[in-house]
Design a binder for these strands. Structure first.
Lengths: 207, 207, 207, 207
DNA sequence: TATGAATGAGTGTTCATTCAT
DNA sequence: TATGAATGAACACTCATTCAT
């Protein structure tokens, strides 16, 4: 019998090495040889487990997305059920230290750019995007009408992405707290106006 | 036959071909041969005018930045001097149709990503970034204290970038109007709170 | 669990898979992985039984040659002892259905080509070639002088090979009957002339 | 202006190097690097002129076919118009020294084998095959009925191919004269029987 | 006996760059 | 000024082979 159960170990090794390589030299310079060297494995192992380079990149992006999803889920579970608390939790999930490390943010920007011309990556990005929008919209809908909620979700999603984008363009590790506060503040502005001006869309504005 | 005065014509031809190529196949697939073919020129001409490929890319990014700067300047000159009008003008300049064409936005995201690991491009991106932040901060400072103004500028800059980012990730041409309105609304929220809550930082709140 | 007595079973499995792979995708594309997959075995087993890929190929060619030899022997044993009958039997042995299947003929042409630059295969091919020539020559010698018999054998051997070659270059299964008749006819022409013109080389022309 | 008119020179250099490489180490070992080295050119030049390796191989096979076609045409033009003379001329064209050099014959067998699984090469081989058959058939038709002529053509074509095949499997340069005589003899046998036995298919048997 | 994980040399191909014209 | 022929290093990927289990 062959060495068994290595698959998840090797896959993770290679995905981490890919993230490391993208962080350090960028996707364009992240040759298979470079990644394999970073993982202290041979080049052949990549096709063995991922078929080809695109397979590894896709798996790496999936890992990134899964981490984010988990991070947001965890934050939301730990928060109260009010719209404000839930929205803050979503923001928290997006700005926990693991997500705002220089390495993670660079990977995000890299995959965003790559997804423009790679259908597989694109699909992943779109699905993630829709989930974020839908999560935000859901919460806003509890306190404002549909059209307003959509715009609020669009704005908050853009703000989060924009904060990330700017984070990834800074070399040093990014001031996650500062970013989070900017987003918190935006949520407050949106919710406070809603409470002040209009009627909640569904039920009482139990903020 | 040594034709003279071809330089600006050729340079522009090549820059436009680069943008076209990035739009259509992405930076990774934009080989010199591909760009030269799109420009209907030979490969050799690129080193002739730009030294090497990086030179062409840098020139292309400069062109992009110049266009944006011009667009913002034009919008601001046509606007009233109030903070709100100036902020809206900056937003307008960022969302005029030429800036929110699919082609332009893809180029932006591409260069953002590339600038992470290319010092030359990075410097350009940072300078542009600082100018936007400073422009926004300047206006916010007229109606709020420094710390608040900085956060407001940070937030608005992030929102603008985020709206662009999301625009470039959509295949079709991007709903510039919708995006602009989201940004307008954010400005309004920020300014209105400031007017309501506190004293303007400098002079009367002549909004 | 060490199963015993698997060797001949596994060897045959692998040889058949090799022939199948050569038939379907050609020798150039017949990687060890491809062959092992066709045999529903692992790649490692090949070196276990045959040392390396060349060993497997050699064994496969030997199998091919043994089949042909057996086929000819069987046909000759079932035929009368006259030169004409024996020559026809040799032809029959070369054109029985198992030998003229598309799969077998493609394998033959493949190994012929490979044998040009692989000493081991070459030796096998030469030995086989000599046996055919000698068998044919032997029969012709009974009815014509040495020099003539040699030329006749050379011609008939070439005709048989040529019919095979053309068969293997046709995609569909090859018209063995047609081919056999062409060869029969050639034998008749050679023998009839000999009977008509000259004295047999050895003994009476008991055709 | 660039160095001009190099294309035919380089193409021919590369085709000759391909033949040389196939002769010396076989197709399987004829890597692009090996061929380029033999041509004293760089590897990149092959894609420059032929697109890829398959393009070069196809061009090489075309060259081989063109040489054969020319050789046969030349021989036929220099021969009398009688069926026998024309058939001998076709044989001559197939066995002139350039065609029966070790190098040429090995290339033939190589391409025959390769054509089994490469549609492009296959098409070339089939076209060539049909031309030979049609040429032979045409001549036989002048002295025998259609069905007989077809079989005669099939037989002679197979004999020619078989003689070549056997030639290519011999290491040393091949006895073209001997081979030619065997084929001549076959033609004589076929024509003489026809003259003796039956009526010519078309017109008087002006052999 | 049999597996398949792992290797790394080798392949075809692409590409930025150079340079003679 | 402009070309495109030519280079050769770098790339992703394949593969026969080895070996721990």
């Amino acid at each position: 019998m062959p060495k068994v159960g290595m698959q998840p170990i090797r896959c993770n090794q290679l995905i981490q090495a890919t993230l490391e390589s993208i962080d350090q030299v960028g996707l364009a310079e992240s040759s298979i040889a470079h990644i394999a060297r970073a993982a202290k494995l041979s080049t052949g192992i990549i096709s063995h487990y991922f078929g080809d380079k695109d397979g590894l990149l896709e798996a790496t992006m999936r890992e990134l997305l899964r981490n984010l999803r988990d991070s947001v889920s965890r934050a939301r579970r730990g928060a109260k059920a009010t719209p404000r608390a839930q929205l803050r939790a979503i923001i928290d999930g997006n700005f926990v230290p693991t997500q705002v490390s220089s390495s993670a943010m660079r990977a995000w920007l890299t995959f965003w750019a790559a997804s423009m011309h790679q259908p597989r990556l694109r699909r992943l990005q779109r699905a993630n995007d829709r989930r974020l929008h839908s999560n935000l919209c859901c919460q806003f809908l509890r306190v404002m009408p549909l059209e307003q909620a959509r715009d609020a979700a669009r704005g908050l999603a853009a703000l989060i992405d924009g904060l990330w984008l700017r984070g990834s363009l800074q070399g040093a590790d990014f001031a996650g707290d500062k970013a989070r506060n900017v987003a918190y503040d935006y949520v407050d502005l949106l919710l406070d106006r809603s409470q002040f001006e209009g009627e909640p869309a569904l039920g009482p504005p139990s903020l």
